[in-house]
Write a protein that binds this DNA or RNA. Structure first.
Lengths: 345, 345
DNA sequence: CTGAAAGCGCTTACAG
DNA sequence: CTGAAAGCGCTTACAG
């Protein structure tokens, strides 16, 4: 009747609960899983006992038998980048509300590390993984997962068309910027890029070229800037060492936008008066910059939610058709662009 | 001899490996765990078979028997805040290199959610948890974990002295700022704060008061600003609606610094010329601001590494004495402060 | 070093 | 609704 003295070493188990409640272990198990097979009275009794005994469900044991772990893996290239952090926040929210838990890993955008981490995920028996593939990931790797029966959704970047995918509408986002700048009269528009080449990179470039062509403009002002923000400011000059002088620049991301805006300032140019600048991602505190930065919002948190939902749906039905969920971008117009008429004036 | 047709449903197990290698399951198990009891030749044979069969270790099954999961829980108030994202990056790095995996959860800085999430961690059988306690967390909660035998380390904030703790030297950081501003001749220094009250909040306030007193100055210019960055800029006036006019302000964090610097700009004041501003955390792209923001670096990534190391050490020895690892801060002097002489001039 | 046996805490049919 | 039994894939003594 009294609690055993060795409770320290032995946790309270479902069998303990069942015995105290005067039911069988199977019944107790049904209560936990909210089965309708159990009568209200029995359920109440069992729940009271669980409470009283301080029972904690052992997911690990359940998984062993039931073949599911209530666990999903999330693999991201770089946690320190707020863009990915927001993606992660979105994922975590929906995974959590599905009563599951996320196992997190950082690939460092390196395929070898990604392989290691991927294996670790399998060893831990995750039910599925959300992967933002490292630059250079082989499509074969994704297909391999498929064979193992491990559901995968790609997020933000994709290397294979064989899994679900959630990402922003990069192409549309760049088009919005181009259209906007053109509407202000700009015709000589640069695109400042950097970083590794992957689908998200290519789509932005594509979007730029297509949008420019759509307006009968040339896409020759694609300029590659350094990686680190300090170096970017120092390299603002690059913009003006091209065949033609741009009057505006679209940035590949907000880091570049920040760097260039500082660099232009250092050159004595004022954005939103002498030059127009559009950021991408809208993840920095654009509101706190002066002038406030006009930027394309890619809503990484929403993308994260979508990715998690895709995975949950697939877990529910392995056979459903592959889907791609593209989140529309939004151009947040603030103060960093001017009409060409006002520059010339 | 040939692979069974139903491999789809049944994964390859340690027993399969053992049989193919012509050893007992126990031996195969020893190989996996790198036991020295196994001869080199046997080991090689078994490893070859594992490779050949595509064996994947089942951590879940191992855990059930061995009572450890190679899993640690990390509970954070807000993923979207780069400060916490960096902490997480540091934690992930050392946990990963210990061959373990992090289960992530977001408490939203709400104690109720934190309780839910904490329970989920227990259900998943984490070996320990790194917790940045939500504002308002009861010390009793931490002590409860202790009773359950679940090792905990607090990070960034602490509500109980009974567990290990890793955090920045908030007090020293504020003192560095005060000393620096005083050395520039400032005597009327404001401290701009906001947010929930917790240990990290109190320590910064304490640090401010102590440092000011140390210089024989009054600490009466503590001003509370709004939470959201847009509102902060709009409230820069608050600084000047105090008993005395400050010539400098230290910010509770970089968000406030960004907001105020924009707000002061809007008032036509130029930081680093008309007014001095010091940020805290140095986590934004201070290098890309103009003027570049002087800020106290709290190195959250290092704090994260320390927290993870503390947990690993405790896992290795439950009985060791409780430790507190305080990471020194560093004042990164850039351009946002002026000597008082130059203001008066 | 190796083998046979028991057991970790749950879920899953299956018979009542 | 309930009970008895088997089993998920591993590790742990224990005897050789």
């Amino acid at each position: 009747m009294m609690p055993s003295d060795d409770r320290k070493k032995s946790r309270v188990t479902l069998l303990d609960v069942a015995q105290h409640a005067g039911v069988s272990r199977a019944t107790a198990s049904l209560v936990i899983r909210n089965s309708p097979l159990v009568g209200a009275k029995t359920r109440a009794k069992v729940e009271a006992v669980m409470q009283e005994l301080g029972y904690v469900y052992n997911v690990g044991a359940a998984r062993l038998r039931a073949e599911k772990s209530r666990t999903v893996g999330v693999i991201i290239p770089n946690l320190t980048n707020p863009f990915f952090a927001e993606l992660l926040a979105g994922i975590e929210r929906v995974i959590d509300s599905a009563g599951m838990v996320v196992i997190l890993a950082n690939s460092g955008d390196l395929t070898e590390r990604q392989d290691v981490v991927m294996r670790r995920m399998r060893e831990h028996g995750v039910d599925g993984v959300i992967l933002c593939p490292a630059a250079g990931t082989e499509p074969a790797m994704l297909d391999g997962l498929d064979e193992w029966g491990l559901p995968v959704v790609q997020a933000l970047r994709h290397v294979s068309g064989r899994t679900d995918y959630a990402g922003p509408d990069y192409i549309g986002g760049v088009k919005q910027s181009v259209d906007y700048l053109v509407s202000l009269g700009h015709r000589s528009i640069a695109f400042a890029v950097h970083g590794q080449v992957h689908s998200a990179y290519r789509e932005r470039i594509e979007g730029f070229c297509a949008a420019m062509h759509g307006h009968g403009l040339s896409d020759d002002l694609i300029v590659k800037v350094p990686e680190k923000i300090g170096d970017i400011s120092a390299s603002a000059d690059l913009l003006f060492r091209q065949e033609r002088q741009p009057t505006a620049a679209i940035c590949f991301n907000d880091v570049i936008a920040l760097g260039l805006s500082a660099g232009l300032f250092d050159k004595g140019m004022q954005i939103g008066r002498d030059f127009s600048l559009v950021g991408f991602d809208d993840v920095t505190d654009a509101e706190a910059l002066r002038p406030r930065l006009t930027s394309v919002s890619t809503a990484p948190e929403t993308v994260g939610e979508n990715a998690a939902t895709l995975l949950l749906d697939r877990l529910a039905d392995r056979e459903r058709a592959v889907r791609r969920v593209i989140t529309p971008t939004e151009l947040h117009i603030r103060q960093s662009c001017v009409s060409i008429a006002d520059i010339d004036a």
